[in-house]
Amino acid sequence: MRIDIITVLPELMRSPFEASIMKRAIQKGLVEVHFHNLRDYTMNKQRSVDDYQFGGGAGMVMMVQPIDDCISKLKSERNYDEIIYMTPDGETLNQKMANSISMYENIMILCGHYKGVDQRVRDMHITREISIGDYVLSGGEIGAIVFCDAIIRLIPGVLSDETSALTDSFQDNLLSPPIYTRPAEYKGLKVPEVLLSGNFGKIEKWREEMAYEHTKNRRPDLLENEE
């Protein structure tokens, strides 16, 4: 997979991709991540990417010209499965969406700032708008990092054990069951006997039951979506 990220803060973006799972994916050649500084596409001495909004009102708006030039250049070089704009009014990121997008070959991500981007950018280029939650951040970079982590870890070969991602929360609209490791008893708290039994049929049944109960108690809305 190739990911092209358009941002005014490339220095903010790089660090997460130089550590942990995302770094491993890049080193293995499973993912390419390229950052494009929007200020390199400006046509003024100040390299400014924003201006006052028509009609008045508080807040600046990212101008159409630099974004259009950057996106158009990238589109001339390859085809993209999606051109994504990270925005609070987009569809909310979930596991099903991450599963689907993780299978794409090329995606482009535009990180917004200020009050957002000129609507004409969205009309001309954006194919999908994604939010990581019902709140506003100072820019789309943090949202893009979250989004990239969610999809990159699903690419075959990234995780040491590929089956691990299949048992994550939300994969079956259920939260994960309780998990334990050594020691079997700590300060009077014991690991459930079934997990020590070696009976994998019973263990799997217990995990399914606990996942359902955990979801019922914490996120009953997920079970409603299944009905």
Rank of each mutant, 00 (worst) to 15 (best):
I67G: 02
C111Y: 08
N79I: 05
G112C: 09
I67F: 07
M108S: 09
Y80P: 01
V64G: 02
I71C: 11
P66E: 12
M60N: 12
M62N: 13
P88M: 06
F54P: 09
K75R: 12
L93Q: 02
E82T: 00
K96A: 13
Y114D: 09
K73M: 12
I109Y: 04
P66M: 07
M97R: 09
Y114Q: 10
Q53L: 12
S72T: 15
V117I: 15
G59A: 09
D118H: 14
E82A: 02
C111M: 09
M108Q: 10
M62Y: 04
G59L: 06
C70Q: 06
K115Q: 14
G56S: 14
F54A: 15
I107P: 00
M63K: 15
Q53S: 15
G56L: 13
M86Y: 02
K115Y: 01
N99S: 10
Y80T: 01
T92Y: 00
S100W: 00
Y114T: 08
Y114P: 07
A58T: 07
I83D: 00
N94S: 05
G116E: 07
Y104F: 11
N79V: 05
G57L: 10
S72D: 13
V64C: 11
S102A: 14
G55Q: 05
Y104W: 01
E105D: 13
M62D: 12
